[in-house]
Design a protein around this nucleic acid. Structure first.
Length: 169
DNA sequence: GCCAACGTTGGC
DNA sequence: GCCAACGTTGGC
């Protein structure tokens, strides 16, 4: 609890669940479940805390990049899908007493006017160490440095200004 | 849709 | 415990 606020990047395929789905969700919140990678699981279980901020990343479908920001509103709890036999995320080795997979809850915070694209992230001189820009990086839950988070949000805001019709008057 | 990079599985 | 085979991710 004494831990400082942390920053994360959560990947999702917008076709499956994009930032617009988060906006439309009840209370604009959702359980971030279905994570089935141990490294990502460990982050969810051990490190993601209420109050942390999340870059909401759209993968696979253009425009690929950061679509907005969400807030962590509930820390790790057992991913219910692991106990659901009808779910593709069902895990027969998991039990409520000893869950194997964890979820957190995130709540919508902001959507950028335009996606901050992966291309832009790769091109930015201060984001060369950002994990998502690295080749072959498939982790769906990634830690983000505070400075990296600040820069990406700034890039998102800059776009909002560019697109503001008032600027054209 | 392709395929490189990765993670997991399972035979030995 | 190694590693080939397989399945998945995700940029292009």
């Amino acid at each position: 609890m004494a831990d400082e606020k942390r920053y994360w990047l959560f990947k999702s395929e917008p076709e499956v669940f994009g930032i617009d789905d988060l906006i439309l969700a009840e209370n604009q919140a959702t359980a971030w479940d279905g994570v089935r990678n141990y490294q990502a699981r460990n982050f969810l279980r051990d490190d993601v805390q209420v109050g942390d901020e999340v870059l909401f990343y759209h993968s696979r479908n253009a425009p690929i990049g950061v679509a907005g920001v969400a807030l962590v509103t509930r820390a790790a709890f057992a991913d219910p899908l692991q106990f659901d036999e009808s779910s593709k995320y069902h895990d027969e080795k998991a039990t409520p007493e000893e869950p194997r997979w964890y979820a957190v809850e995130i709540t919508f915070q902001q959507k950028f006017e335009e996606v901050v694209t992966l291309k832009e992230l790769k091109a930015h001189p201060d984001l060369t160490e950002m994990l998502v820009t690295k080749r072959g990086q498939r982790l769906s839950i990634q830690p983000v440095q505070p400075e990296e988070f600040r820069i990406v949000v700034e890039l998102g805001r800059a776009k909002d200004l560019e697109d503001d019709p008032l600027d054209l008057i």
